[in-house]
Design a protein around this nucleic acid. Structure first.
Length: 805
DNA sequence: TTATGGCGATTTTTT
DNA sequence: ATCGCCATAA
C-alpha cells in the first residue's frame, strides 16, 4: 500500500471537513462528536437545525470515522487519489465516500425528536435533500408521535388496543367535568381546568394516581384532586383513550414494565438526538434517558435562555443538569449568530443578562451593527395598530414584501386590533394560533363522529355527537345510559344500542336505536373496508344532515363553518393520497390528533404574519414588530403577584427580540383597553433594560410643553389601573393638568345621567341608591345598591333606569 | 328537551 | 369586549 495509515487518516479528515465546510468550527465539532453524550448549547439563530441535519448526515455517511483511527481494508490507493482530487475541487464518487466510513449508521437507526410537527417536517425535508432516499428512513418526529407509534405497536401490553384514541384538551376537559360531577366535587371550589393542570403536572413527573394520593397527605384539596385523577384515569382506560401526557407516560411505563420491549428500541436506535431540550419535562427526560441508556449516544440541543414553557411543565433543570446526568458529556456552545444585526443582538444580550438562572452565553455576529432598535409610544392600541400598518405600507412601497413583516404579541387577544386595521387598510395578513382549526366546534363535531366510528368505546366523543344535530336525546337519558353501562360493564354505545332492554331509558329507545343503528352501519362499513375514509366522511355528513344543521343553527356563521367541514374533507383526501394503500380512518385520526395550526404556516404566501411570541419560537423575520410592551401585559399581570415568573417572561422577551433579522420595532401605548376596561401602563421593564444608545425613541403625541398646544383631555377619562403615573420623568414636569392621571376625575355628570346619592328604579332589580358614578368611554358606570338584589354595577346607557328623586 | 339570557373568566400552549 | 357555559324558564 502506497499510503501510510496516518496519511489516509489525515486525508479522510480533510475530506470530511470539506464535506461539512459550510459550517463554523464549533458547529463542525458538534457534527463530528458522534459518540457519547453531547450537549449543544445553541443560541438563537446559531444554525441549530443545520447542525442537527449535518450531524445526522455525518452519522449516516461516515459514522464515527472522524475520531476513529480505524482504516477500512477496502480503501484502495485509487480511492485515496480520488480523495486528493476531491480536496482540490473535483468530485468524489459515492462509492469512495462510502469506503471512507467507519461503522456508518443505517438511517433507520437514527432518531431525532422535536417538539413540533413543523420542526420534524423541516428536519425531514432537509435530511432528504441532503441524503436522498435515506432521509426517509430516519425517525424524525415529535415526542408525542414517536410515543404514539411505539404504543400502537406495543401498547397492548398495557391493556390498550392498537387503535386507541388520543384525547385532546377539549376531550380531557369534558371527561374531567364528568368525573367531577360523579365525585360530587363542586366546580366552584375546584375548577376542572385547575385539576387537569395539576394532573398534567403529576404526569409530567411520572406520578401515578396512587402515588399522588399518598403524597396528598391530609391536604383536603389534594385528596380531592387525587380522587379525580384516579377516576379520570380509569375512565380513559375504559374508553381505550389516552390524553397527550399519557402518550409519554405510558411509553415510559411500557419501557419499565417490559424490559424486552425497551431493549428492542434501545437496539433499534443507536443514535438519538433531541431538539429544544430546554423544553422537555421529566417524563420526556425519562423516555430519552431509557432509550439512550444502552448506546449512550445522546445528543441534546437547546438554549436555556429560550425556555418559555415552564408553565406547561418543562423543567429547565434537564438542560442545566445534563452534564451531571450524563457523565462525560461534551458541551459545545454555539454563539455565532447568523440571523440578526449586532444592535439587535446587543439588545437581546442586555435584556437576558438580567436573568440569574442561566448558563451564560453571548451572541455575536459578523454582520454589521445595523439600524437602531425603534421604540415608539402610541396613544392607545388603535394608534399602535395604525402606526404599524403605516410602517408596513411604507416599507412595501419602498420595496419590501408583506411577508418580511411579523407582529409578535404576548396574548392572542392582542391580534383583534391588528386584524381590523389590516382588513381596513387592505394589508394581506395571516393570524396563526388563537382558535385553531381543530378547535372549531364544527370540526370537532365531525372528528368526533369519525372517532366514534373508529372506536365506539369512546364515551366522551359519543356524548359529544349523540345529540348534535338535535335528535331529542337529552343529557338525562345519556347520563342514565352511562350509569347503566357502568353497572353492567358495557360501553355506552352498547347500552344505547339495546336501549329497549333497559327500562330506565326505554322511553327514548326509539331515538337511541335510530342513532345507534346509523352509527353501527358506518362502523360496519368502515370495518368492511372498500370505502375510502373520505367517502365514508361524505356519506356521514350527508346522513346526519350536518350542513343543514349549521345553516339553521347560526346562519351568520354557517358559511365559514361549512367551509371548515369541507376543508376537513379535503384533508382526508390529501391524507389518502399521501398514505396510498395504507390509508385508513384510524390512520387519519392519528395524524389529526397530533396536528396543530402552526404546522400550516407556510413561508411562501406574501402576507404579514401575526402570532404570539410563543408560536414564533424558531422562526425569523426581516422586520419584527413587538406591540404591547407594557407592565401588566408584557410582563403580564401574574408577574406582579409572582415575581419568580419574571425570568420566564424575560426569556420570552429574549425570544421575541431575537426573531428579528434587520429591524426591530417595539411599541407601547399610553392607554389601552384590556378586558373591557381602559388602563394606563408603564413602559415594560424589558424595554427599559435595553441600553439607551441602542434605542431610538419616538411617540405619537408630543408633549404640551413642547408643542405649545393644550393637551386634549380624555373624553371618558376612566382610569382603571394604578401605576399609570407618568411614562417617564418628563411627563410631570411638562405641566400636565393633574386631572388626566387622577383615578376618578371629579367631573359633574352630564345632564340626564346619574350621580352618587340618586335614587333610581330598574326594570327588574327594583329601586336602589346610586353609590358611585364613574364616567367611562361614552358611558357612566354606576354602582347601585338595590333594596332587593344587593349591589350591582351597571352602565347608565344600557340599564334603562328611572330617576326617582 | 330545548331555548335563552346572564354570569364569569380572561397569558402563553409546540402535543 | 367577548365568548362559552350554565342555570333557569318555556
Amino acid at each position: 500500500m502506497a499510503f501510510l495509515k496516518e496519511e489516509i487518516l489525515k486525508i479522510r479528515k480533510q475530506v470530511m471537513e470539506k464535506d461539512f465546510s459550510r459550517m463554523n468550527d464549533r458547529q463542525r465539532q458538534a457534527v463530528f462528536t458522534t459518540e457519547g453524550p453531547l450537549l449543544v448549547l445553541a443560541g438563537a439563530g446559531s444554525g441549530k437545525t443545520t447542525v442537527l441535519v449535518n450531524r445526522i448526515a455525518n452519522l449516516v455517511r461516515y459514522g464515527k470515522a472522524y475520531e476513529s483511527s480505524f482504516v477500512q481494508d477496502t480503501l484502495t490507493d485509487e480511492d485515496v487519489e480520488c480523495c486528493k482530487a476531491f480536496l482540490l475541487g473535483g468530485e468524489l464518487p459515492d462509492l469512495v465516500r462510502a469506503r471512507l466510513s467507519v461503522s456508518a449508521c443505517p438511517p433507520w437507526k437514527v432518531m431525532a425528536i422535536t417538539f413540533t410537527n413543523k420542526a420534524a417536517g423541516e428536519l425531514k425535508e432537509r435530511l432528504c435533500s441532503m441524503l436522498g432516499e435515506d432521509g426517509n428512513d430516519i425517525w424524525a418526529s415529535t415526542f408525542h408521535s414517536s410515543c404514539a407509534r411505539i404504543l400502537r405497536r406495543d401498547g397492548d401490553r398495557l391493556g390498550y388496543t392498537s387503535h386507541f384514541t388520543i384525547y385532546d384538551s377539549d376531550d380531557s376537559k369534558r371527561l374531567m367535568k364528568e368525573v367531577m360531577r360523579e365525585l360530587d366535587i363542586s366546580e366552584k371550589s375546584l375548577s376542572p381546568k385547575a385539576v387537569l393542570g395539576e394532573i398534567s403536572r403529576a404526569k409530567d413527573e411520572l406520578t401515578s394516581p396512587e402515588e399522588f394520593e399518598s403524597g396528598a397527605g391530609d391536604d383536603f384539596r389534594l385528596k380531592l384532586v387525587a380522587r379525580a385523577y384516579r377516576l379520570y384515569q380509569r375512565r380513559l382506560e375504559d374508553s381505550d383513550a389516552m390524553d397527550f401526557d399519557d402518550l409519554i407516560v405510558n411509553t415510559v411505563r411500557l419501557f419499565q414494565k417490559c424490559p424486552e420491549v425497551l431493549e428492542y428500541y434501545q437496539d433499534r436506535f443507536r443514535y438519538i438526538m433531541v431538539d429544544e431540550y430546554q423544553d422537555t419535562n421529566h417524563a420526556q427526560y425519562e423516555f430519552v434517558n431509557l432509550l439512550a441508556r444502552k448506546s449512550n449516544n445522546l445528543c441534546v440541543v437547546g438554549d436555556d435562555d429560550q425556555s418559555i414553557y415552564k408553565f406547561r411543565g418543562a423543567t429547565i433543570e434537564n438542560i442545566m443538569n445534563f452534564e451531571q446526568d450524563f457523565r462525560g458529556a461534551a458541551v459545545i456552545r454555539l454563539e455565532q449568530n447568523y440571523r440578526s444585526t449586532q444592535n439587535i443582538l446587543d439588545a437581546a444580550n442586555a435584556v437576558i443578562s438580567n436573568n440569574t438562572e442561566r448558563k451564560g452565553k453571548n451572541l455575536w455576529t459578523a454582520a454589521g451593527a445595523g439600524e437602531q432598535v425603534k421604540l415608539h409610544t402610541a396613544e392607545n392600541e388603535q394608534d399602535e395598530a395604525d402606526r404599524i400598518a403605516r410602517m408596513i405600507l411604507e416599507g412595501v412601497s419602498a420595496g419590501r414584501k408583506f411577508s418580511d413583516y411579523a407582529i409578535l404579541y404576548r396574548m392572542n387577544s392582542q391580534s383583534v386590533m391588528f386584524e381590523r386595521m389590516f382588513a381596513k387598510q387592505g394589508i394581506p395578513h395571516r393570524i396563526i394560533g388563537g382558535t385553531r382549526f381543530f378547535d372549531r366546534k364544527e370540526v370537532r363535531d365531525m372528528i368526533s363522529y369519525l372517532s366514534v366510528v373508529n372506536n365506539p368505546g369512546d364515551e366522551i366523543r359519543l356524548r359529544r355527537v349523540i345529540n348534535t344535530p338535535k335528535r331529542g336525546i337529552g343529557d338525562r337519558t345519556v347520563d342514565t345510559a352511562a350509569q347503566i353501562g357502568q353497572q353492567v360493564g358495557e360501553s355506552l354505545f352498547e347500552v344505547i344500542s339495546h336501549a329497549s332492554e333497559y327500562p330506565p331509558i326505554s322511553r327514548a329507545a326509539g331515538k337511541l336505536a335510530q342513532f345507534s343503528g346509523m352509527m353501527q352501519e358506518f362502523i360496519d362499513k368502515n370495518e368492511a373496508g372498500g370505502l375510502l375514509p373520505s367517502e365514508l366522511y361524505g356519506e356521514l355528513l350527508e346522513r346526519i344532515g350536518y350542513v343543514e344543521f349549521l345553516r339553521e343553527d347560526e346562519p351568520e356563521k354557517a358559511e365559514d363553518r361549512i367551509e371548515n367541514v369541507q376543508e376537513l374533507s379535503s384533508m382526508l383526501q390529501r391524507y389518502e393520497q399521501e398514505a396510498g394503500e395504507e390509508a385508513s380512518l384510524s390512520g387519519f385520526l392519528e395524524e389529526v390528533a397530533l396536528f396543530t395550526d402552526i404546522d400550516n404556516y407556510d413561508h411562501d404566501a406574501d402576507s404579514v404574519v401575526l402570532m404570539t411570541i410563543h408560536s414564533a419560537k424558531g422562526l425569523e423575520f426581516p422586520v419584527v414588530f413587538l406591540p404591547g410592551w407594557e407592565e401588566g401585559i408584557f410582563p403580564g399581570m401574574s408577574v406582579l403577584y409572582n415575581p419568580a415568573e419574571v425570568e420566564e417572561e424575560r426569556r420570552l422577551a429574549y425570544v421575541a427580540i431575537t426573531r428579528a433579522r434587520e429591524e426591530l420595532l417595539i411599541y407601547n401605548a399610553e392607554s389601552r383597553m384590556i378586558f373591557g376596561t381602559t388602563s394606563r401602563n408603564k413602559l415594560s421593564r424589558f424595554a427599559e433594560e435595553i441600553p439607551e444608545e441602542l434605542v431610538e425613541r419616538s411617540r405619537s403625541r408630543e408633549y404640551a410643553y413642547r408643542t405649545g398646544v393644550t393637551m386634549p383631555t380624555f373624553t371618558g377619562g376612566g382610569v382603571a389601573q394604578a401605576g399609570g403615573q407618568g411614562q417617564d420623568a418628563r411627563t410631570k414636569q411638562g405641566g400636565f393638568s393633574s386631572q388626566i392621571y387622577k383615578p376618578n376625575p371629579v367631573k359633574p355628570a352630564p345632564a340626564g345621567t346619574f350621580r352618587a346619592g340618586d335614587s333610581v328604579e330598574h326594570k327588574t332589580f327594583g329601586t336602589g341608591l346610586v353609590l358611585t358614578a364613574t364616567p367611562m368611554a361614552n358611558d357612566t358606570l354606576l354602582e347601585i345598591a338595590f333594596e332587593k338584589v344587593g349591589t350591582k354595577k351597571l352602565f347608565a346607557n344600557f340599564a334603562r333606569l328611572n330617576k326617582l328623586s
